[in-house]
């Protein structure tokens, strides 16, 4: 018995893993920033740093939804194609002359509905959520082509400010959206019962069920929020590029998973924090920006980013195996 107790003592140091992840991410961020600023004097300029944040804000907002789903022990691979579909809806509405505010609300609502459908299908069919949302993602890929008839839709009116305006000429609006939404999701996950239920469901679904938590309802809600945030993201994307493209969300699901895993969110659910995920998203952008600045050819960038994703997942697996 004695040596078992001692072993327990040793593991105590590890007890606040999520807090540690945040510190450790901040450390890596800092080191990369220092190295990059030595290699390239332009890197540390306010403009470049905001560019990185601006570039990552869309991925970041969409990932906020995915992270809720992942904490509840599920996966959402639909965000990219949901985003393409809602973007098409938004572009059509805008070109039809609907008021911007109504377009924004309608687009978010369409995303919310798509997310709810995803949630209901995952929960009720009990198919592994990875496979179910992979299939659903293909469905939305079709929807994103059907709605605009396979064409890009160019925005005729002025919706440009929504995604490109810089407050005081410096801070891009999407960066502000990202931090405001991240704060809201952080508060929800930390201080509401809904958030706590998601953690519990992801941590141990059977124990959560026996503790009186409605697994299906809460999971559906997480998916619905994920869809809503994908809808919101599509508005920024179309505003930025001035058009809606059927394939504009293709890289989102994988990048979202990569960023969350880098940020310390468990692939099996129940663990992970919003600050960790936000840092993961930023670190991911920093790597991409650094590769650009170091003039790594884009083909090699894919190889590097893919390797980063695999290394991050492998490290998180090693971390969780060690505990058992």
């Amino acid at each position: 018995m004695n040596h078992i107790d001692k072993k327990k003592e040793q593991t105590i140091k590890w007890n606040n893993r999520s807090d540690q992840t945040v510190l450790y991410l901040l450390g890596i961020l800092l080191v990369s920033v220092i190295i990059m600023s030595i290699l390239d004097e332009y890197f540390l300029s306010v403009r470049n740093l905001f560019n990185i944040l601006n570039q990552q804000s869309t991925l970041g907002i969409a990932t906020l939804g995915v992270v809720m789903v992942m904490i509840a022990g599920c996966m959402d691979l639909t965000i990219g194609n949901v985003l393409a579909s809602t973007g098409a809806v938004a572009a059509i509405l805008l070109n039809a002359g609907v008021d911007e505010i109504w377009v924004i609300l309608a687009t978010c609502a369409v995303g919310f509905i798509a997310g709810t459908i995803n949630g209901v299908i995952v929960v009720k069919t009990r198919i592994d959520s990875f496979i179910a949302t992979l299939g659903l993602s293909t469905v939305y890929q079709g929807v994103a082509l059907i709605i605009p008839g396979g064409q890009n839709i160019y925005l005729q009116g002025k919706f440009g400010d929504f995604g490109t305006f810089r407050v005081g000429g410096i801070v891009p609006l999407p960066v502000i959206y990202f931090f405001v939404l991240a704060t809201i999701v952080y508060l929800v996950m930390r201080f509401t019962k809904f958030g706590r239920k998601l953690y519990t469901i992801g941590g141990n679904p059977e124990a959560a069920y026996l503790a009186g938590i409605n697994l299906d309802l809460n999971r559906i809600m997480a998916y619905a929020i994920s869809g809503l945030l994908a809808g919101f993201t599509s508005l920024i994307v179309i505003s930025r590029i001035g058009q809606s493209q059927p394939a504009m969300g293709v890289s989102y699901p994988l990048e979202a998973i990569a960023a969350t895993v880098i940020g310390g969110v468990s692939l099996s659910g129940g663990k992970g924090t919003i600050p960790g995920m936000v840092l993961g998203v930023i670190l991911f952008g920093l790597i991409r920006n650094s590769l650009n600045m170091l003039r790594v050819p884009s083909f090699y960038q894919y190889v590097t980013l893919g390797a980063v994703i695999i290394i991050a997942v492998a490290l998180s697996k090693i971390g969780s195996n060690k505990k058992q």
Binding site: G203, N204, A207, A208
Partner: peptide, 15 residues
């Protein structure tokens, strides 16, 4: 079925 092993004592008690 009783505990969420990767959650804290605090969260397990209050759930």
């Amino acid at each position: 079925t009783g505990l969420i092993l990767d959650h804290s004592v605090l969260w397990n008690i209050s759930i």
